[in-house]
Amino acid sequence: MNRFEQSFKLLNEYNGKAFVPYMMAGDGGLECLVERLVLLEKFGAAAIEVGVPFSDPVADGPTIQSAGIRALKNKTTLKGIITELAKAREVVTIPIIMMTYLNPIYAYGIDAFAQDIQTVGVDGCIIPDLPLEEEDIIAPQLADAQVELIRLVTPASPLERITEIAGRGKGFLYAVTVKGITGTRNLFDNDLNEFLKAVKKLSPIPVLAGFGISNEEQIKELTKNCDGVVVGSKIVELFDRNNLHEMEKLMAVFKQGVKIV
């Protein structure tokens, strides 16, 4: 059983729902990456997305863009992140997923990247600028390394396409909840619920909703129709403001019988 299956099996105490936080590696300094990952696991993360900063993040809104710029100012590199993740793996038990645009991987070397992240125990990889049509550039290498490629579907994806994308995946399917970039909201709840219902029906693997999710009410509403959420901009913002209490409270949303005030 890989870490994804394990982690999603243990969700009973969370009403069966997964909370997956996203954080930007190197924001606040790369030296605090391990510490933050440990904290997120302690707060109840089912898995963690570790963002790799990129100079031109076209899928991201202002919050994650700024975090990336801060991380780059701190001289964060993909190599440095992978080194830190090796240390993290010794103390973090849940799946670690790297979220990175394609170019840093391309510059690192695709074969070397797949091998190195396997070696350090990374479980999955999300590449926001890699659609189905272009997967051959890296999917075979990731498959050989047994690193899951986590794929995205969006409200703009036609149903046949969602079926095709969902069918290829393991780990989980990432359902983008906006027509737009991270940190934004522009769909009516009703349309969103219909979208999530449709995706859930078509997907053989767990479906997590993400992009622009920032509060408990949204999370509760969305998870009526899916298996969990990815929360990015909000977590990045709370780390930046060092508001760990609010983070703990938000991440306890699925915990049964726990109330953090």
Binding site: D129, P131, E133, T154, R161, I165
Partner: peptide
């Protein structure tokens, strides 16, 4: 047919843009 010129080109955009 995929918009590749040798190894170059392609459609390396977020899924949200693929339909467009």
């Amino acid at each position: 047919e995929k918009g590749h010129f040798g190894i170059f080109g392609g459609r390396l955009v977020p899924e949200t843009l693929m339909k467009a």
